[in-house]
């Protein structure tokens, strides 16, 4: 039996984490959650994941910093990383792209579009 795709979502809002968990587990994904970039890096140090979905505005370590840290080593060089943010400016998108993000999703997210994006970057 195939292992479900494991997704790490990183967002400081408990409400947003609950929405993401509901949308993704309902489609059979294995969902792990972290509340900021530091917590995400700590979890990733000892665990494997197929996709990271991260917010941008977070305390301690924001989404840009998280992406940069993941991309600076070889272990997560090719890991799909999707940004999920209320921001939609070209400047922020360019910054995320330069840091190594795989894609950008605008909040409020549409569950169907989010799931389609996850499937696309994992196949």
């Amino acid at each position: 039996m195939l292992q479900p795709i494991r997704i790490l979502t990183v967002d400081d809002s408990a409400s947003m984490r609950a929405l993401l968990r509901h949308a993704l587990t309902g489609q059979g994904f294995d969902v792990v959650q972290a509340e900021d970039g530091v917590a995400a890096l700590e979890w990733l140090a000892g665990n494997e994941v197929d996709v990271v979905i991260t917010d941008i505005n977070m305390p301690r370590l924001d989404g840009f910093g998280l992406i940069e840290q993941l991309r600076c080593g070889s272990r997560h060089r090719d890991r799909p990383i999707l940004v999920l943010s209320t921001e939609s400016s070209d400047e922020k998108k360019l910054r995320a792209r330069a840091a190594g993000a795989t894609g950008w999703i605008v909040k409020p997210f549409d569950p169907d579009k989010l799931i389609a994006a996850v499937r696309r970057v994992t196949h």
Partner: peptide, 13 residues
């Protein structure tokens, strides 16, 4: 109402 367009738009780089 939610914005009619750009809700949850996905852009892959």
């Amino acid at each position: 109402p939610r914005p009619a367009r750009s809700v949850g738009d996905v852009e892959l780089f």
